[in-house]
Design a protein around this nucleic acid. Structure first.
Lengths: 160, 160
DNA sequence: CCAGATTTGTTCAAATTCGAATCTCCTGCT
DNA sequence: AGCAGGAGATTCGAATTTGAACAAATCTGG
């Protein structure tokens, strides 16, 4: 890995656009969610995951993995959400160590209240800005990139 | 804003790919930079900005803006970098309030040592995963999206 | 030239994030 | 059964981020 190829103009343009969009978009979404329902973007995503799960509940580790976040960070956020009454913890019957984070009715209501505005902003700031071709290119390209980075990445590379 | 259009499958695919890539990529880059040169991704970006600037120096506010970060956060990071000897502060002659953050020789050396590996990883995890068409679509699409979100966004919309 | 509005950079406390350490419990193996 | 190793979740302290409040300096219109 002596002297890796530098980025050409087009690559640089894409990279910087990606970085900028990522930073700006996240900030805006976070801001709006805080203003409208008092949730951080992460907290919102937690509620979304729970709402989509079987029985509106998930194991902590599973949830952390699906959010691409650290377990200790999730413990903290779930505690916050529990204080707010949006989520509650339940012991796992099949594994005494396990803990379920479950969406409460209040949590579901808040999520339903938050979602329309959130989706509208995602649309306004990103989705509706893109052409259909760009949208597909992003879904495909970034889909592939994220897939390759997923946990289990470097594990058991087939010998060919 | 009664009932905004929901995201269809393709839009959802793009949105989730974007979110995932953003989270995973940032973490990986941060990790590598820490391991190899002991810098966070943000600190690396600060050095990059300074290296690219006139005289290897920038005003705090200007730097914060170009990094899309808060001023107080920048103050903290510049202090850290100053402790490490990678950056130094200099008073601004034309405005007594002003402060320049300037790259030191040591900072430049570290940056030159860090850059190759960083670029290689950006390539490996993102750039080289994309086709040329996807790269262009991302540069164009996200370029437009980020442009619209830039500070000064909603200001003085021409009356037309 | 001056009062008031703005800008600059920092400071502060509170909230969040991170990873290492920890504690408890489960699983596979002998 | 019994034990080593791994998994699940939390706790802890340190590092970082945030926005509000601040002090100092600059700019603006009258």
């Amino acid at each position: 890995m002596a002297d890796p190829k530098w980025l050409d103009d087009e690559e640089m343009r894409a990279w910087q656009a990606f970085l900028a969009t990522s930073a700006l978009l996240d900030r805006r979404l976070d801001q709006q969610l805080r203003d409208e329902v008092g949730l951080s973007h992460l907290q919102y995503e937690i509620l979304v995951q729970l709402a989509a799960a079987e029985g509106n509940a998930m194991r902590m580790t599973e949830l952390a993995a699906s959010l691409l976040n650290s377990k200790s960070g999730l413990t903290y956020q779930i505690s916050q959400l529990e204080k707010s009454g949006l989520v509650h913890r339940a012991p796992c019957t099949i594994d005494v160590r396990g803990v379920y984070a479950a969406l409460t009715d209040e949590g579901r209501k808040l999520l339903e209240r938050a979602a329309p505005g959130h989706v509208a902003l995602v649309r306004e700031l990103l989705i509706d800005v893109l052409t259909r071709e760009q949208l597909t290119a992003i879904a495909d390209g970034l889909g592939e990139a994220s897939r390759r980075m997923l946990p289990k990445d470097g594990i058991a590379e087939p010998v060919r």
